[in-house]
Nucleic acid binder design. Sequence first.
DNA 1: ATGAAAGCGCTAACAG
DNA 2: CTGTTAGCGCTTTCAT
Lengths: 355, 355
Amino acid sequence: MKQRVTIADVAKKAGVSATTVSRILNGNYSQTSAETTARVLEAIRELDYRPNALAKGLKQMKTQVIGVILSNLQNPFWLRVLKGIEDTCRKAGYQLMICNSCDDPAIEAEHIKNLQTRNVDGIIVNPTPGNRDLFEQLLATGYPCVFVNRHLPNLAMPGVVMNNIRGASLAVEHLLEGGRQRIAIIAYQGEITTWTERVEGYKTTLLAHGKREQDLLIELVPNRPGAARSAAIRLLKRNPRPDALLSTTNLMTLEILDAIQSLGLRIPEDVALVGYDETMWCKYLNPPLTTVRQPAYEMGEIAAKRIIQLCKGTRRTKLDVTVLEPELVVRESSRPASATPDVGATIAAGTGTSG
Amino acid sequence: MKQRVTIADVAKKAGVSATTVSRILNGNYSQTSAETTARVLEAIRELDYRPNALAKGLKQMKTQVIGVILSNLQNPFWLRVLKGIEDTCRKAGYQLMICNSCDDPAIEAEHIKNLQTRNVDGIIVNPTPGNRDLFEQLLATGYPCVFVNRHLPNLAMPGVVMNNIRGASLAVEHLLEGGRQRIAIIAYQGEITTWTERVEGYKTTLLAHGKREQDLLIELVPNRPGAARSAAIRLLKRNPRPDALLSTTNLMTLEILDAIQSLGLRIPEDVALVGYDETMWCKYLNPPLTTVRQPAYEMGEIAAKRIIQLCKGTRRTKLDVTVLEPELVVRESSRPASATPDVGATIAAGTGTSG
DNA sequence: ATGAAAGCGCTAACAG
DNA sequence: CTGTTAGCGCTTTCAT
């Protein structure tokens, strides 16, 4: 039940008090003679002493741990975000406690309580709309918390998000320029800002380009496997058929691709496709996929910096929200309809140099 | 510096001692009258009391936290593993502290010390060969630790790994059956069992099928971006050209794909390709990719169960290693050479129903 | 420059 | 059934 070697053991071995050892451990060399310091350091080394973070944390009520709550660890988008968070935290001496809410408010709430119970210094969270009151409470008590990727409307939580309106807008404008007339969008339904904003970007852009309300083709589907595939099929069976599809998630994109293939339609001849989120495989899909690239790593990095600042700062830091800009990566899947040759699509439309 | 509401506050409010509160918190209802229990529970609720896990951990030297050290969070393979670990741990009431070693022994060592410092109850690790002594020490001191995916030869650490020999073997046999004559493999160099075993599987299978040592085509490359691509180009420029490539990583597969495309070669007509690790996008590549599927989720699940068992068990549990079997997912990219039609490959070779 | 003492919040003997 | 006491290992006044 006891720890192998404690600060007292080191103190005894070095012939000093625990206080002195503690000072040295925390880099307070100025208060100790060089000779003593050396002796203590030697004792630490010899005994292979490791300070107990629990005891330290209990005393200081700081743990150097950041809690991270994500909604879907299956989405590779989060890997980049996580890497940004991790790199930044590591540099600053923080450890991560990563949780998965599965977009379930109950699980999310449980995680938040759990993290607080463990005295994590701060929380980075991709929030669920269902826990607004809980977040308001966090904000009110001043518990360091930062939103990432999503935000909750009218809740002044600091955070870092993407410009989703612009992301959808970029995609739609690109498709319009390519001569596409009937652009459809598929999105998950729900009060989640990433989804709603992308739909909004789609809407406003089309309306700004002279389309009417009744020209909009919006399919909102529940966030569960297969739903997007069905929606895509539904859309593609309409008459007239949409000539472009805008996906709003990288997972969703694969389902849509499946739908298009199963209907025997060709991309981009019969229908153009633009995906949301650039992934390492987009380039190798059949055909190579045009996507909206989001600065995921950077988002993680900024969120981490923000939370660390909040953890350290005694004075309240600015509670602003950073908005990061997406960009469009244009590839084969959205090639202009007019430029489409009538023969079968090129195989291996790669980067060239035939060997 | 102090906690908002402590067990003492609850005790006072309920008119009992802290001990009684503690008992109730830990589900020891049998030792307390129903009436008292109700009063305490009520006080807890009213004060919104949350026990301090640090204090509890310090007292018991248990934290209900499992440390997880992975070598490369960028690889989506680990997402499945992580999900398996997470689901299992959550059910058992454990939190996760996830670290990324980036395959750097120094970082790994730092994480291990850090996790011990934080008194995590156990560690799941995808080990680096560089810290053998450290793992031996963990084993000697009886600190709960479980290897995952990799193991260190001649180190009796409990763990759960894949049958990599069989994985490569399945792929090679499949290619041989398809009439491929010059099968090459690309793997990362280093003492890492996952790589070496896959190469071994490749070797023994080919030799068992009557090939000679000099027929083997093995490219070992450093684990850094672009290296596999170069190796693939090197291989494909040989005369005679290999007619099949076996990749040993999903990240590597994308690089190889890139190489093949850049040389203007067709898959599977000019060269067959088999990837290692099934991912959600393999099916949608150009062409759909044959892969070796590994039970990633299950591996995480088993590793988690194992470590939890070790954390709880006072008596030493069996230190055995579980080996999970891979399976081959056959798709277009490894279609038999003989069966290859001479016309351009089919576009959208999807699952059918032209609608 | 160093040490003694007190206590962070909780649990685990031991009493009663 | 309930409370008293004594720490877990560390940091932090406050003395010296």
